[in-house]
């Protein structure tokens, strides 16, 4: 049988080629690539590759990239989570704007926040009553943190100005001032509050 480049293949390589291709695809695409990629990332950026875990006095308290629940009045409180802050059940609310259940939830949250921080409904930052996409958003907008400053200052018996200064020091800006939005990390901010209290 002639196999010159001018003689066209009319079979398409046949079953053997397809079977061998399947095996190679799994080996190269499914094993070599992800293993190489994972090892490369792990060697180059070990802290980030490990999940950005945060430790205090040798105790792992969470990840800077995962929201966790706070309820004490002396802590900044995160956005609502449709997943109960459980990373293994991450989810959004998936409520449509027209769903009455969304209105009910927002109304309850807004009332609670207005009461908690002594502000009017019209000044509640909207992300505080909006569930995040994965239920794990670790950030608040700077405004979402500032409205909590007075309550935290009161609970901790410190100056509100000190809390506001701490927030300002923790603001991460939009990248190049253009991409994304300014934000503060709730866990890191709360750790800073604790450290300030213990005089570190």
């Amino acid at each position: 049988m002639q196999t010159s480049a001018h003689e066209l293949d009319t079979r398409g390589g046949g079953l053997r080629a397809a079977l061998a291709f399947g095996v190679l695809a799994v080996l190269l695409g499914g094993l070599v690539y992800p293993i190489a990629g994972t090892l490369l990332g792990g060697w180059t950026f070990p802290a980030q590759a490990g999940g950005s875990l945060v430790s205090v006095d040798g105790r792992q308290v969470g990840s800077a990239l995962v929201a966790q629940p706070f309820s004490a009045p002396g802590y900044f409180q995160p956005r609502p989570s449709a997943a109960g802050y459980n990373p293994t059940a991450a989810a959004g609310s998936n409520y449509a704007p027209s769903n009455p259940a969304l209105r009910e939830r927002m109304a309850a949250d807004a009332a609670a926040i207005a009461e908690r921080d002594g502000i009017t409904l019209a000044t509640v930052p909207v992300e505080l009553i909006s569930a995040s996409g994965g239920g794990l958003d670790p950030h608040l907008s700077p405004a979402g943190a500032r409205v909590q400053a007075a309550r935290i200052a009161r609970a901790r018996g410190i100056d509100e100005a000190a809390v506001l200064a701490l927030i300002d020091a923790h603001v991460e800006r939009a990248w190049l001032g253009v991409f994304g939005a300014p934000r503060v990390n709730v866990l890191l901010l709360n750790l800073a509050l604790d450290q300030r209290a213990s005089g570190h």
Partner: peptide, 13 residues
């Protein structure tokens, strides 16, 4: 119920 701002339900800050 809150300040008038862009839709943030299901979004990340």
């Amino acid at each position: 119920l809150a300040e008038v701002a862009a839709n943030m339900e299901g979004k990340e800050v």
